[in-house]
Design a protein around this nucleic acid. Structure first.
Lengths: 351, 351
DNA sequence: CTGAAAGCGCTTACAG
DNA sequence: CTGAAAGCGCTTACAG
């Protein structure tokens, strides 16, 4: 039979057809019902292996891709994973985001990013908005949230993994989280300085978020244990962390009498600024004063002298947290609810 | 009548009820049809102002929030805006993302971030995935994309604004974009160095993405115009940009004979690394060699000496591009398809 | 200006 | 193991 008008593809019968290849198209072409296609494609058990193969082949041939909106509406679960981080201006959180996002995308999830600016009510509002998208999972920075936020996380039933922090006390009712012990890290670096013979070790911090405060507690416990604690050794500034602020704090601290012989900065950007200020002022590091940082950020190894710091496994945290979330979203139980990824003291030349 | 069983709230009649407050709930409570509620809430014209008010009041009282998935499915448009950036490890793009995301969120849009790693086919794949979510708009870095990507952007009909770059030639068939002229910026800094009496100005670059290459062309045209061009003054390294690489390149360049008297780095991180290397090597900057950077990244003002660089309006670009996209998504036409946000030469002490 | 009806493209009890 | 049917919660021609 020659080509005739009636053999041309029919116009879409619906007045709202979108041109998309749908589940029904696949079903028709494979000679099965839409339900079966749906099950086969999602790898649901209880479907004939032979059918699975046929459906997959037809689906590939037609170039079928499931519609996320339809899927979300029908199943009440999207392929979004919401992630809440405090700031994009801190490389730490960007590394976390980058790693998590990479892992999640490889598993077919879209990352929905929310920036809280360390503001509990902004965090709450952000979470509310993200929950509207029925995320399949939640990644949130830290363990400190206001009651409404905690309530939202809980009542939404969405699997959730916390980043960076680990609960201090017992494991009772503990949430899923991957990170390291901030307090221990703070104490470890302080002990390292003590072991190097430093006696008047200042702790200098900005931003003062919960993790910074934990490092402070770690420092306190270590200097107290060594009997060299003094309240005047604490320099706490709530302003955002930056090289410029580090330089400023360094100058102030160096005017302190009796003089300090070491400064432990809560973040590398502050320490880098201090190192630059020392160069400008002609203050010898570490001869006159030792300087230590935290996080091993970009550039710390290039300082003069290179910065002694705490290497934190942030990329690893982002990836492992995403993996744990993937496990939870699959309905499985992670090996352990808490994952401690530890930290390293990176001895370079500034101490 | 006393409380009786029959006055208790009825169980949901559907076997799949979600407990969510829906459009129909609002319609019922307001005594109008769902269609009217839908129109009233979206501010569609052609609905009685009195009704709008009533519907809004009822909606607020019931705490109704539209379901994004249902809305996306029915309207074929989500409230997502997809953004494509090359890297998260370059502060430049993070600033772009931060600004755009902030502006978009304030207008009710969710940002879907995609990281291309400067890989054209990864970009294409990412765009494909994002398009599945039927984004309301698209923000993409640069103007260089492979044919398939361009085709996708075009055939999807999704409003799109390009970031950072501006088309070089005429305005013919030009896409929407906000940025500045990279080539001009490269030339301007070079002329600045020439005006300071420098004669052998090297251009040192890493990553070699299209924008870096444009700066190179700007440098070339300026040194050629001054009659001081030499191919041996070009130091191009495709590796990712970093302080460490900058230090390395600096050492190599300083071994060059005849000696250079200035180095223009295509990005501040390279220049910062060079400055640190100069300190280590005891090379006087700018006495022996001038060093200039690009972008005015964090820390450049804290270097020793502070780094002369080109200040680029990246946060402004992110915000303005988002605004332009908002205009397009509204169905309006931006004042001009291209927005040139310019740049500044920031003379500090390294030149 | 308003409403009834159909439809967006899936998933999921339910029945077999 | 498979299918018919209902439903997820909206929007949008169409008719009035």
């Amino acid at each position: 039979m020659p080509h005739s008008a009636s053999s041309l593809p029919k116009l879409p019968k619906s007045h709202r057809a979108t041109g998309r290849v749908t589940l029904s198209d696949v079903a028709r072409a494979a000679g099965v019902s839409p339900s079966t296609v749906s099950r086969a494609l999602r790898g649901e058990r209880a479907v004939d292996p032979a059918l699975i193969e046929r459906v997959q082949a037809v689906s590939a041939k037609l170039g079928y891709v499931p519609d996320p909106a339809a899927r979300a509406l029908a199943s009440q679960r999207s392929n979004h994973v919401a992630i809440l981080i405090p700031l994009l201006s801190n490389a730490l959180f960007v590394d976390l985001l980058d790693a998590a996002q990479k892992t999640l995308r490889a598993a077919g999830y879209q990352t929905l990013m929310g920036v809280t600016h360390y503001d509990a009510s902004e965090e709450e509002q952000l979470l509310r908005e993200q929950l509207l998208h029925r995320p399949a999972g939640l990644l949130v920075t830290g363990l400190d949230h206001n009651p409404a936020t905690r309530q939202l996380m809980h009542s939404s039933q969405v699997p959730c993994v916390h980043l960076m922090d680990l609960p201090v006390g017992g494991i009772s009712d503990a949430p899923y989280c991957v990170g390291f012990h901030q307090t221990e890290a703070g104490a470890a670096m302080t002990r390292h300085l003590l072991a190097q013979g430093r006696q008047r070790i200042a702790f200098a911090a900005a931003q003062l978020d919960p993790r910074v405060m934990q490092r402070l507690y770690g420092w306190r416990s270590a200097v107290q244990a060594a009997g060299v604690y003094a309240p005047t050794l604490e320099f706490l500034n709530p302003a955002p962390s930056s090289l410029a602020l580090g330089a400023l704090m360094f100058e102030q601290i160096m005017q302190q009498r009796p003089a300090v012989d070491a400064i432990f900065f809560c973040n590398d950007d502050l320490a880098q600024g201090a190192l630059m200020a020392a160069l400008r002022l002609g203050i010898q590091v570490p001869a006159q004063v030792a300087i230590a940082g935290f996080n091993d950020l970009t550039g710390s190894d290039q300082m003069l002298p290179p910065l002694t710091t705490v290497r934190t496994p942030r990329a690893h945290i982002g990836e492992a947290a995403a993996q744990m979330l993937l496990t939870l979203m699959r309905g499985d139980t992670p090996a352990a609810p808490q994952l401690d990824l530890g930290f390293d003291i990176l001895q370079r030349q500034s101490t």
